[in-house]
């Protein structure tokens, strides 16, 4: 009994060290989304000017096919970093990617797509105060949501999509949902 008591501080120390070590490797910005397995929020976003036949993005547009909804903005630096990956996916992948131009002037959102390329099927404009983005629980851009064919949100990705996390994380989830 006594010996156990003497060991207790050591055990507590080891336990705390393990806890802190785990904490060091966690990203505080990765907050679990409460919207997983819930339907896409009600929305009817206007299209961006000059995108041809695009009628914007509404809840009904996300039904019927597994798709990715990507939150971007012309003011968003990390989106510039992410964009080549989305452009490559447009060429190489059959997964439809839709955009939400968040907290942005539609003209600027459209100009940004002209400059950097346009990987999206549909784009909806969500100017400040970004009600639709708040309905999606967005905390920053870029963020991406995988939506299944019934319009249910299945996965949220915070930060830029890279070829690596597309291959390792997002695509397997999409393929699973497409079955």
């Amino acid at each position: 009994m006594r010996r156990v008591l003497y060991l207790l501080p050591v055990l507590i120390f080891v336990g705390l060290t393990a806890l802190f070590l785990k904490g060091l490797t966690m990203d505080p910005r990765q907050i679990p989304s409460v919207l997983i397995d819930r339907p896409v929020p009600e929305m009817a976003l206007a299209p961006l000017p000059g995108r041809g036949a695009d009628t914007g993005l509404s809840t009904a547009d996300l039904k019927g096919r597994v798709s990715v909804v990507n939150i971007y903005g012309s003011w968003c630096i990390a989106c510039v970093q992410e964009h080549p990956t989305l452009m490559a996916l447009k060429q190489q992948s059959d997964v439809p990617i839709h955009g939400i131009d968040w907290r942005d002037d539609p003209e600027q959102g459209a100009a940004w797509l002209k400059k950097h390329g346009d990987p999206y099927q549909r784009v909806g404009s969500d100017p400040a105060p970004g009600r639709t983005a708040v309905d999606f629980g967005v905390t920053g851009a870029p963020e991406s949501f995988i939506v299944d064919r019934n319009g249910i949100i299945r996965y949220k990705h915070v930060g830029p999509i890279t070829p690596e996390n597309w291959r390792k994380t997002l695509l397997p989830i999409i393929r699973e949902l497409e079955k």
Partner: peptide, 10 residues
């Protein structure tokens, strides 16, 4: 932050 402003407005 811009998002904080949006949330205040909402």
């Amino acid at each position: 932050a811009d998002l904080a402003r949006d949330l205040r407005l909402i």
